[in-house]
Design a protein around this nucleic acid. Structure first.
Lengths: 136, 136
DNA sequence: CTAACTGCAAAGTTTTTGCAATTGC
DNA sequence: GCAATTGCAAAAACTTTGCAGTTAG
């Protein structure tokens, strides 16, 4: 059987979307990507953005996050890193890679699962929101 | 300023929803909760389910997960535990609490955030899906 | 060439909201 | 009582899909 998926064309839309994703660490939503993409390609459609995000995900070039109580966010940085979300403004930032030794065997034993991956997410308040506690 | 939020009535709908959530570890979706709730209260509406989930979350009685590429899932168990999701069937299970020492100060230093909480999620295949690898 | 991709618009899903009636405290 | 909650239905928010035309390899 053929396990290699990849079979996809280049298109300016797709390349632009990837470029946008890689130019930020802010984990944008599909809508945000769309708005930024149309600055360069005014005719691009939201459907195309969603289709390309889906393809890029299948090809392993990006990662879908969906981490909080809102819509999907995408990550163009595939290096090992974790995430932190501000509970005040909802922003998601990268946590540069820190090695956390997590004994996955214990998890496998406790659950009966075969464990492949882990994902670690932190919650807190970002510097901006911290300073605005008294405002408004 | 008054930081205590809570001010909420009891209603049979709300109590039922909480009871359902606490009776399972399967992290149901709003739709699933709705379907089960209407077995006991046939006239309950989906809107009421969503409103109560939102209130219960505000009151800190449940937790919204939203962990994968689909719709929200809710957790009625607030004891410390982590989650594992099967990448084959999508099911989410609890990982009974295991102490993972994670140095949150390092995260705070690296990001500038005030860090409150962490959430750890594992991915793998559940025993059922493991055994079905060759079927179909 | 032709399979994949595009823009557009319509449809699908999940969640929220407005309103009049009901209910808990 | 009166504010909070409910059922219902309509609307909003996010995502997917059908189609006919365009494009990359």
């Amino acid at each position: 059987m053929d396990l290699s998926v990849k079979k996809s064309k280049n298109s300016k839309q797709k390349n632009l979307i990837l470029k946008i994703l890689r130019s930020t660490h802010s984990h944008p939503t599909a809508q945000w990507i769309f708005e930024n993409a149309r600055k360069e390609l005014p005719n691009i459609s939201l459907g195309t953005v969603y289709r390309n995000l889906s393809n890029l995900k299948k090809e392993g070039k990006i990662r879908e996050l969906i981490m909080g109580a809102d819509f999907s966010r995408f990550d163009g940085d595939l290096r090992n890193h974790d995430h932190i979300q501000c509970t005040a403004c909802g922003k998601v930032d990268d946590v540069p890679f820190i090695f956390f030794p997590i004994p996955m065997e214990q998890v496998a034993q406790a659950t009966g699962y075969q464990v492949f991956r882990r994902r670690l997410k932190f919650f807190g308040t970002c510097p901006e929101c911290d300073n605005q506690t008294t405002k408004i």
